[in-house]
Amino acid sequence: MTGIMDSVEMPKLPENQKTFAGIPEAVFLEEIDSFMAQPDNENCEKVLQRLDEQHGKYRFMAYNLEARRRKLKSQIPDLERSLEMVNVLRKEDEERETQFLLSDQVFIKTLVPPTKTVYLWLGASVMLEYPLDEAEALLKQNVTSAVSNLKSVEHDQDFLRDQITTTEVNMARVYNWGVKKRQAAAKTNATTTPLVRIRSDKQPHPMISMSSQCYVSRELFISTVHRKGSAGCPSRLITAIH
């Protein structure tokens, strides 16, 4: 099989195409910021969903190509054995005793006389009788076609692997961009919320607090508080820090 694979060249690609099956090419996102700035890419989750759908389509194509490659791999040896048998029948001048498969695990002996014709299995329960020369030409044509198709499938598989990798990298870049955006938004919200410092203009009373300063949110009501009642209880002035 190696000799046949080397002797058959891969067919030429269609014009302006990179694959025989017409697989769409995945574009690598070099400028992630400009890509996410486009009107259709405002929502990071929707972009990831589109990329995930594209990744799933690539995986489905890869499954079909692998099934086709396995089928061709099994067909080529059968065609080669049939071609060898045609050559054997052409050289026979006397009857040959042989065995053939009658049913599962059941073989029967028979005598094969010299012949100039052979039956080829075409599939779909169809067999046709061919002269040995025509049978040999048809089998050679089928072998060449199978090897050519196998090389085309393998070429598409290599291209498809690159597209799957590119899509996975794009998904990772978009996800990381979304994480950084959320972190930056959280940091901005934290820095833009001002604090209010409570400052005492006198020494604090032991009954009130042992600390001279404390911080509260801006949402608190800011006012001047004057405590009355017990002797020695100081006035406290609340001022906002901008």
Rank of each mutant, 00 (worst) to 15 (best):
H55E: 13
P77V: 13
A37G: 07
D40R: 10
Y58W: 00
K73Q: 14
V47S: 05
P77Q: 03
Q157R: 11
Q163K: 01
L128M: 08
E154V: 08
E129K: 03
V118T: 11
L89F: 03
E134M: 06
D52L: 14
L111A: 06
D104M: 11
R59A: 11
Y63Q: 15
M171H: 04
D93N: 12
Y63N: 15
R161T: 13
V147I: 02
V118H: 09
T144E: 15
V47G: 06
L101T: 05
E136D: 09
Y63F: 15
N64L: 09
S152C: 09
K46N: 13
R59N: 10
Q99V: 12
T166E: 02
N142H: 13
A137T: 15
L111F: 14
V126P: 02
Q54P: 08
K116P: 09
Q75V: 15
M36H: 05
T110W: 07
L120C: 05
P113Q: 04
K140R: 14
A37C: 06
V86I: 06
E97G: 06
N64Q: 13
N149M: 12
L51G: 08
Q163E: 04
N41K: 05
Q49T: 14
S125I: 12
R96G: 13
T110I: 13
D104I: 12
L160I: 09
N87I: 10
E134S: 06
N170R: 01
S148R: 04
T144N: 14
V118E: 10
Q75E: 15
Y58F: 08
Y130W: 07
A137S: 12
A37W: 05
P39R: 02
L120S: 03
L83I: 06
K46M: 13
R70K: 15
M127I: 09
D156I: 04
R90A: 12
T165Q: 10
L132K: 01
V174Q: 06
L72G: 07
P114I: 04
F159S: 04
